Simulated assay, not measured.
Amino acid sequence: MSAQGRSAANDAVIIGAGYCGLSAAIELARQGARVRVLDRGQWGDNASAFNFGSVAVMPPALPATAHGDHDPAQRLQATLAPVRALKEQVEAFGYDCAWTQPGHITLALDETSASTLRQRGLDAQALLGGGVLWLDAHQVAGQTGAQGLMGGLLNEHFALIEPARLLLALRHHAESLGVCIQYATPVLALEPGLDAVDLVLAAGRISTARVLIASEEAWSLSMAAAREPLTLHQTHLFESAPLATAALQLISRQPRVYGTATADKDYFRVHQGRLLFGSRLGLVPLEAEPQAVVAALRQRLVGYFPSLGDIEVRQVWSGSLGFTPDGLPRTGRSGPVCWGGGYCGSGIATAVSCGRQLAHMALANATPAFTVGEGEPPQRY
C-alpha cells in the first residue's frame, strides 16, 4: 500500500488486538464478515497478554470518586455472566489457557472492610448458592502468613488463567477464520463517510463498512465514545525471582489468590515458585521508571510480609484500567462506529463478552436512527 493509497474494503476493522478485539473478530468472522484487526503495539505487550490472570465472579471495588447506581445484585450479575460464558467458550473450542479454580480470598484489613465483605458474601451466596465463605482471622492465618488481617471472604468460584495463552488461543482462532491481524499499526484518525469509514494510518488509509473500537485508549478516535464516562487508572505488577520454600509457605499455605477489598487493591499469589504482587490506583504514574514502580510495590509488600522486602524482582509491568462511574462496562454506537470497555479491573471475562457484544451490535440489521457523530445511550451488560 502506497503512502497515499487505500486498501481494499473490509466489512469491519477492529482497533485493538486484546481479548475484546479478538473476540469481536471471531464473532464477526463466524458470520462471514471480512475482518481486519489493528493494534498499535507488538504482539504480547498489552494488558491482555500480561496481567494477574484473574477470572473473577465478584465485582471489583470502585474508586472513591465513583458515583451513580451501585446496585450490588446488578454488578454481581454483570460480572458472573461473562465468566460463565468464557468458561463455555474455553471448553467448546479447546483453548489451552490453563484454566484452574484455586479460590480467592478478599482480605479485610479493618472493621469497615470486614463489614463490607460480609455483606458482599451474603449477596453472592444468594446468587451463587454456595462456595462463598467468611473466614475469621484465625482461619485466614491458616491460608496465608500476611500480617494485620481481620478476616477474609473466600470465593471458591474464582478462576485463574495464563493470560498470554488465552490471548494466543483467541488469536489462533481468529486467524483460522481468515481474520487479518496487524501489529505495530496505530490508527491516527477516523473519517466517516456516506457509505464507509476511512481509518488513517501512517502508511495510508483503510476503508471499511464498520469500525469497532476495542481498546479503551482508542476511544478518543470517536467523539461520541470519548464523551462517555471512562476514567483510566494505573495498575502495577511485579514477578519475583524463585523463592525458598519457607517464603512460599509464608505467602500462601494453600493454592489460593489474595487481594484487598479497597479500590487501591493489593493482590498477590504464588506462581511457579515466584511471588506475583500488584497494586492499583495511585502508586506511581504509568510513565514512571520500573525502579520507581518496584520501590512502590515493595513498600506495599512489607505491610503484609516484612521479611520479603528485599526479594529479587525479575519482571515489572504497568498498565491502565478503565473505570466507569457505576462499575458496569459500556458499549455504544455512533453510526458505523461501535466501541466498548470499562471493565473496572476485572477485564478477562468481561472483555471477551464485550467483544461479542460489539460484534452483535455491528451486525445489527436495523439502521441507526441518528447521525454520525451522535452516539446512542451506552448499553450495559
Rank of each mutant, 00 (worst) to 15 (best):
Q4W: 06
R6T: 10
S7W: 02
D11T: 05
V13I: 09
I14Y: 01
Y19W: 15
S23C: 01
G32C: 13
G32Q: 09
D39C: 03
R40D: 09
Q42L: 11
F52G: 00
A56N: 14
V57A: 13
G68Y: 08
G68W: 08
G68C: 13
D71L: 04
A73W: 01
V83K: 02
E88F: 06
V90E: 10
F93A: 14
G103E: 06
H104V: 06
I105R: 10
T116K: 03
R118E: 12
D123W: 12
A124Q: 01
L128M: 14
G129P: 04
G130P: 05
G130W: 10
G130S: 11
V132F: 02
W134C: 13
W134S: 12
D136G: 11
Q139R: 10
A141V: 06
Q143M: 10
Q143E: 13
L149S: 07
F158H: 14
F158M: 11
A169W: 02
E175G: 09
S176D: 14
L177Q: 08
T185W: 03
D195K: 00
A203P: 04
G204S: 03
S207P: 07
S207N: 04
A209I: 00
V211E: 01
L212W: 01
I213T: 02
E228L: 09
Q234G: 15
Q234S: 15
A244W: 09
A244R: 11
Q249T: 05
L250H: 06
I251Q: 00
S252F: 08
S252L: 08
R256P: 01
V257C: 15
Y258F: 15
T260P: 12
T262C: 06
K265D: 11
D266V: 01
R269T: 08
H271K: 14
G273Q: 15
L276P: 09
G278E: 04
R280G: 01
P285W: 07
Q291Y: 00
A296S: 11
G303E: 05
F305N: 06
L308M: 06
D310R: 12
V313A: 07
W317Y: 06
R333E: 03
R333I: 00
S334Q: 09
G347N: 07
T350R: 08
L358T: 07
A359W: 05
M361L: 13
T367E: 13
P368C: 11
T371E: 12
P377W: 14
